[in-house]
Design a protein around this nucleic acid. Structure first.
Length: 870
DNA sequence: GAGTTTGAAACT
DNA sequence: CAGTTTCAAACTC
């Protein structure tokens, strides 16, 4: 009781603030009296119950203390909770619960209020309160959690609610009695068993607290349920009332099933009406729950969620639960158990789809795994996607783990996480992507780079190590993952292979592990390895040192955009490279003829490109000669199309003004983005950087830009000689500066992209995709021209979505520098990730991007230089 | 498993 | 920037 007041105080405000609707019930009598509430009260008790859910949720919300209490165990735990419960309604379990229950049973909602009021003079009880009171009563054991429950875990929560309802009704039918409440208490302890199981199931890292809260309530409910069941069969009746379908079976099921998930499932079934909860399958529930947890743990919840939830409890804890809550709530809102379930899934799906910006950062840490998973789905376009993907991955993982987990203890969960990494390792794509993902993270949060790297490394280690570790991971275990695979590794199955460094201490790029940004692990057979977690500082320093010399040192060597490059791409097809990927730097093979793994291109399973300096290239994935020839051909075609387009536009100049985007190629040819269906040229970043020629694109509004661009015709094509020379474009850029704001904006976008190479994408030549060259960075956008078949080459080579070959294979490391550059380069928009940018017709780009800024951006040199330096 | 070959990375 | 050396992986036997 002591605690309740403070808790109440705390909670009250929060509640009111959070949900006006909620507040009325508990503390604001004024609100309570609202006609609506009255009406509700007048309604069948069932409805109030529904309301109760809400209230519970709030109560739970209100009761952060509960969270703190969580560690407590069963009986005491409960009491403490009850005492702490914010609402006066939450009287001490013994005292309040009994009378309350009696009241409820006898009087239903309205009367209960009075009783409750009496019981809790402290709090102003209102009619609205009654509903709450019921909730509280029913839940008293449970009530606190509701909010918590919701936040913590959907399933659990869901379960709780239905149970509560039943409890209430049961109490009514049975007739309230202290004895029952006592029983409940006693049984609660018993119920702990199941609850514990549930906890085990719960993957939450921190869940313990949360779980405890939920447990007691849940356990109590179960206990009550059981007790009542035993005592009387009313329960089924009640159930039937609530839910025609489920009925007694549910109880039976609950009975039989101690595990939460099961119960939850049952509950869900039962309470489709009253409570949203509902995961038909306990397993699914668990999965969902785990997913939520994972989500939470990994992503740490969106900021958005937090406010909504308004949970007072520790953010951390709540964070996870909140995620769950959202899902749960959404589901609950929607309703029927089945529907709910579906929706829950749907929501999860949606979540996947959603671009969760906030989540990213959080996710970084954990979950490289998730990231990795995510990556494959959609190359690196948007973090949101990744996350979502990651979520999916999470789901899959969780599902997988569940089976194991059910029997297993909590500890299993972490293993699962590891398992994820394993999964990743299996799939080449995943592995390869991992670094990419990391890159993205890095790009987005440069600060995180180091940590990210570590994660990656750790992940790698896990990969290597874990497979052996957990049986569970068997699935994930890569066949190659045996400790020292040195030479076993390989192509398709590329498992993580360890390095075998003898003299470099694994602190040079010679070391594949180091080069991939990974720590050496068990799989490595290196001597005097300095690339271990213990030596993080050294490793980091070394990395910095290397990057200082070569910013791209840790960038993925193979750049490819699987997603970005549509089959349509002539280049891709022509290139004959599998994923339309190319080695960033190109190989320098002299004797191997690019037919052996000595050749990085070959090893990466990509064709050689113009960037290669190989002799007698016979790369099975694409000969350099062929590549060049094709590029050349393509470039001509493009020119043609461009010219045509330009002509067309000229005719349309008047209209063009309205049109947002023209991409001007320095060749003087205008490319009407408009031609392309949506006027959106996609830009891709390509890393060829040093080697390749760099092309600059200037996009501006169709007419003006085109004109200007024409004036600017000077096309700067840089051959390999230009490698690092960011210089030159500035003068050209100046021209661009004059463009109207929106034009500028467009430019800026392009600039950000400022990739060196252009690439036409899409079936129609109209849609150009611009590849960003790391090196080209900030430079003016060069126009693709005939003269520059190389351009095409480049473009083809590295389309930007970075995809490294299996890191394990030969390295794919997160291109910090690369991404960072990009981000830096894009002063205005900050294209941090190597995303593909689509120039859309943005009629008037908000002046937000001041011309000056754009100009600055336009100066490729500066951008590039700064970016690289960064 | 030892030795050779190869080419990238590092160094001058 | 070119040339050389170092290094470790890839390859061969």
């Amino acid at each position: 009781m002591d605690s309740p007041e403070p808790s109440q105080i705390k909670h009250t405000p929060s509640l009111s603030t959070l949900n006006p609707s909620i507040t009325p019930s508990h503390e604001s009598p004024q609100v309570q009296e609202s006609p609506f509430l009255r009406f509700v009260n007048t309604l069948s008790p069932i409805q109030p119950v529904k309301a109760s859910h809400v209230t519970h949720g709030f109560l739970g919300l209100n009761s952060p203390p509960l969270v703190f209490k969580s560690p407590r165990i069963s009986g005491h735990h409960r009491e403490a909770q009850s005492s702490e419960r914010p609402d006066g309604t939450h009287l001490s379990g013994g005292e309040i619960s009994q009378p309350d229950i009696a009241d409820i049973g006898d009087n239903c909602v309205g009367e209960a209020h009075g009783d409750l009021k009496k019981l809790n003079p402290q709090q102003p009880l209102s009619e609205g309160f009654t509903t709450d009171a019921q909730n509280d009563i029913s839940t008293q054991s449970c009530s606190p959690p509701p909010s918590v429950d919701k936040y913590l875990a959907d399933p659990g929560d869901d379960q709780m609610y239905p149970v509560n309802l039943e409890m209430e009704q049961s109490t009514d039918a049975v007739g309230s009695s202290l004895t029952e409440s006592e029983k409940v208490i006693l049984e609660v302890d018993r119920s702990d068993g199941p609850a514990n199981k549930a906890e085990e199931l719960l993957p939450l890292l921190e869940e313990s607290n949360m779980v405890h809260h939920e447990r007691p309530a849940y356990s109590e409910n179960l206990a009550i349920m059981e007790g009542e069941k035993d005592g009387a069969e009313w329960v089924p009746q009640e159930v039937t009332n609530l839910d025609s379908s489920s009925g007694a079976d549910v109880f039976d099921n609950q009975h039989s099933h101690d595990s939460l998930p099961q119960c939850a499932g049952n509950d869900q079934r039962h309470h489709s009406d009253c409570t949203p909860q509902l995961m038909p399958d306990p397993i699914q529930d668990i999965k969902e729950f785990e997913n939520c947890n994972e989500m939470m743990s990994t992503s740490q919840v969106n900021s958005e969620n937090i406010p909504q939830d308004g949970s007072e409890a520790s953010l951390k804890h709540h964070g996870i639960p909140r995620r769950c809550l959202q899902f749960g709530e959404a589901a609950s809102v929607t309703l029927g158990s089945n529907t709910f379930h579906v929706k829950l899934n749907a929501t999860s799906c949606d979540m996947k789809m959603l671009p969760v910006t906030a989540s990213k950062p959080p996710g970084i840490g954990l979950h490289l795994n998730s990231i990795i998973n995510a990556v494959p789905l959609s190359c690196p376009s948007s973090t949101g996607v990744r996350l979502s993907d990651g979520l999916q991955g999470m789901h899959s993982k969780s599902s997988i783990t569940l089976h194991k987990v059910e029997n297993a203890a909590k500890s299993s969960i972490p293993t699962d996480m590891d398992g994820q990494s394993f999964i990743d390792t299996r799939n080449k794509s995943h592995e390869t992507d991992a670094p990419v993902a990391a890159d993205y993270f890095i790009s987005e949060s440069p600060i995180m780079t180091e940590s990210i790297d570590l994660y990656l490394e750790n992940a790698c280690d896990k990969r290597r190590v874990s497979p052996a570790d957990t049986e569970n991971t068997e699935e994930f275990n890569h066949p190659n993952t045996s400790k020292k695979k040195k030479k076993t590794n390989i192509d398709d199955a590329d498992g993580p292979k360890g390095c075998n460094c003898k003299k470099s201490k694994c602190l040079k790029l010679y070391c594949d592990c180091f080069g991939a940004g990974l720590f050496c692990g068990e799989a490595c057979a290196c001597d005097s390895c300095g690339n271990r977690v213990e030596f993080q500082e050294t490793v980091v320093e070394t990395k910095h040192h290397i990057e200082s010399r070569n910013p791209d040192a840790f960038a993925p060597k193979i750049v490819k955009c699987a997603a970005d490059i549509p089959q349509h791409n002539m280049e891709d097809v022509d290139m004959a490279t599998p994923a339309s990927a190319r080695h960033k730097r190109g190989c320098n093979c002299k004797r191997s003829m690019c037919t052996k793994k000595y050749c990085e291109c070959f090893q990466s399973k990509v064709g050689c490109s113009s960037g290669c300096r190989c002799d007698g290239c016979k790369n099975a994935f694409g000969k350099r000669e062929d590549f060049v020839a094709k590029e050349h051909a393509l470039s001509k075609e493009r020119e043609r199309s461009i010219v045509e387009a330009a002509l067309d536009e000229e005719a349309l100049d008047d209209k063009l003004h309205s049109r947002p985007k023209m991409v001007t190629i320095r060749t003087g040819l205008l490319r009407p983005a408009n031609h392309l269906s949506p006027v959106t040229p996609s830009l891709q970043c390509s890393d060829q950087g040093k080697q390749g020629t760099k092309y600059r694109l200037a996009s501006a509004d169709s007419t003006q830009s085109s004109k200007k661009s024409r004036s600017n015709l000077a096309h700067t094509e840089t051959n390999d000689s230009q490698k690092n020379a960011p210089t030159g474009a500035s003068s050209k850029e100046s021209e661009l500066i004059d463009l109207p704001p929106y034009q500028l904006s467009n430019r800026c976008g392009i600039r950000q992209l400022s990739g060196g190479s252009l690439r036409w994408r899409g079936s129609s030549p109209i849609t150009p995709s611009i590849n960003l060259d790391n090196e080209s960075d900030g430079k003016l956008f060069d126009i693709l021209e005939d003269e520059t078949p190389d351009i095409l080459k480049e473009a083809s080579t590295p389309t930007k979505s970075v995809k490294a070959n299996s890191p394990l294979q030969k390295r794919v490391s997160p291109p910090h520098s690369h991404l960072l550059r990009i981000g830096s380069s894009s002063s205005g928009g900050g294209l941090k990730s190597g995303r593909k940018f689509i120039l859309q017709s943005v009629p008037s780009f908000p002046p937000l991007t001041p011309c000056a800024d754009s100009r600055v951006v336009c100066n490729g040199k500066e951008d590039s230089s700064t970016a690289q330096r960064k």
